[in-house]
Amino acid sequence: MGDTVIVIIVIALSVVLMFVFPLMTMADRTDDIAQLTIETATSDFVNSIVVKGKITPEDYQSFLQTITSTGNTYDVEIEVQVLDENPGKKTTQTDRTTIGENEYYIITTSQVLDVIDPDGGTPKSYGLKEGDFVFVRIKNTNQTLAQQLKNFFYTVVGNDTYSQSTEKGAMVKATGK
């Protein structure tokens, strides 16, 4: 009886060592490469926005294609902080010795997508100007193989259970033409 139990334990350990361990290792490497891919794609996307001064539908679609080529699904957030110099101008025009403060207001993902990827409409570029800021954040929404394997041993609960994410932001360098 004792020998039987030991044999069962040995078989179980062997299965874990010979199959699960390499699988987990490779799944982790896949996640690392996917993370690098989305970091590179996000950096390139943000860079093209700040250089061109606009978010073009072509750049956006190309960005989506690149990140989904990792085999995962992602939630993409685009936030634009638009520089408003009018309050500063009005202050200076009232009191000539004072430099007025400029303000920023936020444009969210849905407002940007209404222009570059509208439902039923013609996509067009979302123009930005020098001094605006753009931020792109992405998080994966599916469970990767590595997450699934880890869930055998422990489960992460909560609202954010993503394993891959990145955020890039930059100031727009030239007003889009």
Binding site: K89, K124, K129, G176
Partner: peptide, 27 residues
């Protein structure tokens, strides 16, 4: 001798559809 600020085009503010926010600028 006090520094004053001015704009060559005074009393003008940027349009919110095409200067501040450029979403209505045509391609």
């Amino acid at each position: 001798g006090i520094r004053n600020y001015y704009y060559p085009v005074e009393n003008a503010t940027g349009c919110y559809n095409s200067i501040v926010n450029r979403r209505d600028v045509s391609d």
